[in-house]
């Protein structure tokens, strides 16, 4: 984090990134991770076990007027091991990427891929149709389509500028 991120005015107004705009949120986030980083140095988990996740998948979020599309790169998962929960204002993707049984305990020459559990929560700043969300897992990419609610659509109004 740079000092510039503490200044809210310079932030681009990307709606989904709302949680990062509040400087206190940022500070809290930094304090949270400070202890995690500290404990990580000793190769032990913080005793409150905040991170049950071993790795964190990367996500892309795109949107248009009607929907939000969250895509995550999750190669080699079993779709049964992906757990998606939706709250009124956040989306949580949880899962467990298991090492293939036949590879277990064998001689590894190289191990670059990630295994284990992961958990990722994405804040959603607009009202959404929770019952119309659908998720698709294809070619190792998870795509979650979240339609915005009618109310959220109404809220966006264009204001015309009149000339006197």
């Amino acid at each position: 984090m740079t000092l510039r991120e503490l200044i809210p005015f310079t932030k681009k107004s990307v709606p989904v990134k709302r949680d990062r705009e509040n400087p206190f949120e940022l500070l809290r986030h930094d304090m949270d991770t400070l202890f995690d980083d500290f404990f990580r140095g000793f190769e032990m988990e913080p005793f409150w076990g905040r991170h049950e996740a071993r790795f964190s998948p990367k996500v892309d979020i795109t949107e248009n007027d009607r929907e939000i599309l969250v895509t995550a790169e999750l190669p080699g998962m079993n779709e049964k091991d992906i757990d998606i929960t939706l709250n009124h204002d956040s989306l949580t993707i949880k899962g467990d990427k298991k090492e293939e049984k036949e590879d277990k305990g064998k001689d590894y020459y190289r191990m670059e891929r990630s295994y284990g559990t992961f958990c990722r929560t994405i804040p959603i700043p607009v009202e959404i149709e929770t019952d119309k969300v659908n998720a698709l897992y294809r070619k190792g990419i998870l795509t979650i389509k979240i339609p915005k609610s009618a109310k959220a659509l109404e809220e966006k109004k264009k204001i015309t500028v009149k000339v006197e």
Partner: peptide, 22 residues
């Protein structure tokens, strides 16, 4: 792509993460 290379008795297995590829 990230790869795992595993040696087994009969063969060597190369596993590569390539999301989005079929």
């Amino acid at each position: 792509p990230s790869v795992d290379i595993i040696e087994r008795e009969e063969d060597i297995v190369l596993v590569a993460d390539m999301p989005g590829v079929d």
